[in-house]
Nucleic acid binder design. Structure first.
Lengths: 158, 158
DNA sequence: TCATAAAACGTATAATTATACTTAAAAAAC
DNA sequence: GTTTTTTAAGTATAATTATACGTTTTATGA
């Protein structure tokens, strides 16, 4: 068998990368001109498997793109927690000041941002200190509790 | 007059950012629960205008995402103003927290400082977050209006 | 003001994409 | 080698999204 699924996938990637495909029928016709006979349903599955996405296009509405040409900016949280570098917390009004080991503040702040705690409006990290802007009306004790709930490794640290 | 379309766009951005919208009817219902009455056709237009995209999702096939959460790795000429990297604003007391794309906070803060808004006492920039200390007694809504007046590209974003 | 142009948007429907169901082929297990 | 399981893929159709068209609203200009 000449035209296997993976051959077709490779061809699809090339065609999409060339950047002129606006719908699955166009892709189907282009594939046929290269000797791949297939159907729209199969292409729908192929595009899903290849994680091809449609992005807005000035003239034609949307255009297909390899999602690798796009890179998620959302941080990933895994492995051992940078939260373990935290040393103390202090409060002033609706601000919390979080102390970490030197150089760890940015990565701790990234984790805090990533989990999206509703109690936190935003964070700003220096080298070993993070400024946390709290939601209005939130008590210091409630925030401390919420933090420990979310990050048990902070118990006895803050 | 309340700018309905602009309000709706801002609401859509928030809802999509929360990350649980899989099709336009779900978005329609969520908007309705927030008091926005609209139709699927209008949402289709809105999503195009806001450059919202659908990306593959493990369980449900595809999910809507703000395209800013994806960053093209290809060199591209975007708009000139760093303000266009801004994604949201939130308030707590006399502080405003401004979220930008990663790494853009310093340049956005520079612009804010450069224009010398009398409403702003000072700014502190991290990587993707700016802390803005507001003049005492300034309401959140007045500041939001002042910002959009000064930077029209922020409309529908904050 | 009034007239006119432009923008917003709903309805109905077209266009596009996803999927339930089925069949066939390939792989794995026996 | 036969049976069972898994994978691939076509057909038909469901689900979803985009848009032509008409109407209303809002902005613009005289």
């Amino acid at each position: 068998m000449m035209n296997t699924k993976s051959d077709r996938h490779r061809a699809i990637r090339q065609i999409i990368a060339a950047g002129q495909i606006f719908n699955q029928n166009e892709l189907k016709e282009t594939l046929e001109s290269q000797g791949f006979a297939t159907t729209q349903a199969t292409l729908s599955r192929d595009l899903m498997a290849l994680k091809v996405i449609k992005v807005p296009h000035a003239e034609k509405g949307y255009i297909y793109t390899l999602s690798e040409n796009y890179q998620s900016t959302a941080p990933q949280v895994e492995g051992s927690s940078p939260l373990q570098t935290c040393r103390s917390i202090a409060f002033s009004g609706n601000l919390a000041v979080f102390k970490c080991l030197p150089s760890f503040a940015p990565s701790v702040a990234l984790v805090l941002d990533a989990v999206g705690m509703p109690e936190i409006i935003g964070t700003i990290a220096g080298d070993d200190t993070i400024l946390i802007i709290l939601k209005e009306g939130l008590s210091h004790e409630r925030f401390r509790t919420a933090l420990v709930d979310r990050f048990p490794e902070l118990r006895d640290r803050i």
